[in-house]
Design a protein around this nucleic acid. Structure first.
Lengths: 228, 228
DNA sequence: ACCTGAACACCGTTCAAGT
DNA sequence: ACCTGAACACCGTTCAAGT
């Protein structure tokens, strides 16, 4: 399986800029949309989404907090850019000989999950901010095209991808979700759980293997789809 | 199909209270945990999650903003309580003659979706705040028990429920997700979309029916599960 | 073109006080 | 027991100004 990294990393940032102040012609911008976004991702990885405030973020960049607003309209746009950066990291599948639609969808979302688990704090953002940028749409378009190439109709392909994406994001949300606050009744000891919630306890007796469980659900989704 | 409303609504709030000030013995609290939570849900339904600030919320309740803190430790706890209230509204399935594990899981999450679509602004909350309160755990426990009754092992039941829940929440998130801000490249006309993203456009040509698509995915998940 | 700094209109929460 | 009010330590963003 080969993966293609899409997105801008590495591009941009070169080339001589025209500077308005002609007396100091080679002063360069301290900032850059790309470093802003990458730094934001790093901060979120470290401190969580709530840990990224525009003021602290400015300090992190070594710049006045308001400088960021020259490149992005507001905090929401920064979050959207971070989501897009994470999706760029997932990249794109290269179709190989013998690929089936099942193998393509399977690999796509297995990889999506693995990448998102490396950025767990971005998962609520990814689940919550559907970004419809040209790069995102183009990637979706090529995935659909690949699935059509191996035999699906475009409508079915879209259907399956939408469902598999929903499942993956939903699964990641609960997987990465730190149980919010200590709510009513937290701190129940394991032994107590067994008598209070016997069926739940019985179901968890074998332990919980998130990789396996995720795979079973994704497999079931593909096997059950009335497509092939 | 019969549904049981679980949760506290209707209980509480009666009974004579003991008042510390014995000279004015029948003064009653202006507030109540239950009215706080119900009001919060109503405000979120109307104004969205960001529209609920503790200060405006106090005004809505006709009370000093800080009064709420007597009943709940912080805003996060308020959100958790709202999530629980929504789950109470979903209620619980009564097992009928001839039920199969497929029919039970199907009905449970179809109903979950219908209820959450009546409170679309709470969906990010539900997806993002896994509440593990006794009521939630008890409901999960009884669902597992019901599935065991119709033939599943507890482990398989838990597995399937976890996957179906992930799928449902993930699906609702994109369904209710207002595309964040006008990101790069928004405002592309339909005709342009067709040439820029031909496969995507072909897939959407028949139109998009969220009910049908959700049902297909859930059905596939159930049909594909190696359980029966 | 790119960045700064002050200012505006908010936040959630602590804490001492009132009744 | 239940609620108030002032105060603290923050926010995101606008806008005029600097270079």
């Amino acid at each position: 399986m080969k993966w293609l990294r899409t997105g801008p990393s590495g591009a941009g940032l070169a080339g001589g800029r025209v500077c308005f102040d002609e007396l100091v012609p080679d002063r360069r911008p301290a900032l850059d949309r790309d470093v802003i976004v990458r730094t934001a991702l790093a901060v979120i990885d470290r401190d969580g989404v709530a840990g990224l405030t525009m003021r602290k973020f400015g300090a992190e960049l070594g710049v006045d907090p308001m400088a960021v607003y020259y490149y992005l309209p507001d905090k929401g746009a920064l979050f959207d850019a971070v989501v897009e950066a994470v999706h760029d990291e997932v990249g794109e599948l290269l179709v190989e000989e013998g690929a089936t639609w099942q193998s393509l969808v399977w690999e796509t979302f297995q990889r999506t999950r693995r990448v998102l688990l490396r950025h767990p704090h971005t998962i609520p953002l990814v689940g919550t901010r559907p970004v419809l940028s040209p790069r995102m749409l183009a990637r979706a378009d090529r995935l659909i095209a690949a699935l059509v190439e191996v035999g699906l109709t475009a409508a079915t392909a879209l259907n399956i991808v939408a469902c598999a994406r929903s499942y993956t994001v939903g699964y990641l949300l609960v997987e990465a979700g730190v149980p919010a606050g200590p709510p009513v009744g937290a701190g129940v000891a394991d032994a107590d759980v067994m008598v209070a919630y016997p069926s739940l306890a019985a179901g968890m007796a074998q332990g919980y293997d998130p990789d396996r469980q995720f795979g079973m659900g994704l497999r079931a989704l593909l096997d059950g789809f009335p497509a092939g």
